[in-house]
Design a protein around this nucleic acid. Structure first.
Lengths: 181, 181
DNA sequence: GGCCAAAATGTTAGTCTCTAACATTTAGGC
DNA sequence: GCCTAAATGTTAGAGACTAACATTTTGGCC
């Protein structure tokens, strides 16, 4: 990460990484399947899926995912914002890496869909809800990283999820429930 | 595409592609920046952005994007479903290619954001709305390609966008408007 | 038809990521 | 102190992509 941040991702070869780590190239690839994978490490998926599954099953799928993500972001310890911003900034500035975020999201999406379908939600509805919510938070995340000023990350995520709860958050606490299953 | 579909993407080298096209490797790379790029060609972005911009600016951003996408999918001529399904299926079955869809979506997202911000929507709201809606339709698209049975694509997209209009489509024609700008 | 500039294509050599096969070292249990 | 297993190293190579330079093809113009 130091090398990536100082000279850029493409300008850093794995030979350099290996040398900096006092290790052979081969060893590098035994620890990281690809050079890209150095940048990605999100062990939060199971937590998120659990929190989504824990939401009131009477709510529409979209709302359950939304609230689950909200709960997840509130609960996360997370490293210092500046480190995260550096990393996300690096990713956001590099199309191929940015696409890689979605390779992660796809896994998260699959977990969420499984959790939802397990509690009686239709498959398409589950996919759309998961995909839509993840799309929203990811857009907000990339937008956050692009800003130099720097609002608090958790606040930002809360704001984004609130926006998706529009219009007027009719499904807020005690709000309308479309249909029970 | 023939080679990809018959032998798989990774199993097809650009040397083979070049040979099949009676052309040198170098020439291949002059027409396609990467091997991956052969699979992606979506010239629909400007249309979508235009239709989103055309929606009633009194509606919340999320709803405008949703309706714009709906209009876009209804208006599209689009090639035969089977060809599209083959292509999307190829992409969906290959994590790196699937991630590539998002490299496209990012461009679309940027266009949508520009269109929305141009009509007075706050940046974060625009980003979240665009990201969320694109996330939903993309999830539905990949889900559609995974199914062998085969519902009509346009129908499927309509269904997905309707799901995102939840709960109860309170912003449906004549519905509640949260705030005007 | 013949000429000429510009565009498209080819050739070669090289860099970089990543893999396979095999040799070597290191670590930990008995 | 030995012996197995894990971790690491070495070498060779495939495959995507690039740079530099030579060659052909194309299309307008006289």
């Amino acid at each position: 990460m130091e090398l990536f941040l100082s000279q850029g991702f493409d300008e850093t070869t794995v030979a350099q990484i290996a040398e900096a780590a006092q290790v052979s190239q081969m060893t590098f690839f035994r620890h990281f399947p690809t050079k890209d994978s150095v940048v990605f490490d999100d062990p939060y998926d199971p937590v998120i899926a659990g929190l989504v599954a824990a939401q009131d099953s009477a709510l529409p799928a979209m709302e359950r995912v939304r609230r689950g993500l909200l709960a997840a972001w509130s609960a996360m310890p997370g490293p210092a914002d500046s480190a995260v911003r550096d990393k996300i900034g690096l990713i956001a500035g590099h199309p191929r890496l940015a696409a890689g975020i979605w390779e992660n999201n796809r896994r998260t999406e699959d977990l969420l869909v499984k959790a939802l379908v397990g509690t009686g939600v239709a498959r398409l509805e589950a996919r759309v809800a998961a995909g839509s919510c993840l799309g929203g938070v990811t857009a907000a995340l990339l937008d956050w990283a692009a800003e130099p000023d720097g609002q608090d990350l958790r606040e930002r995520m809360g704001a984004a999820l609130a926006l998706m709860g529009a219009p007027g958050d009719p499904c807020g606490p005690g709000g309308t429930v479309r249909r029970a299953r």
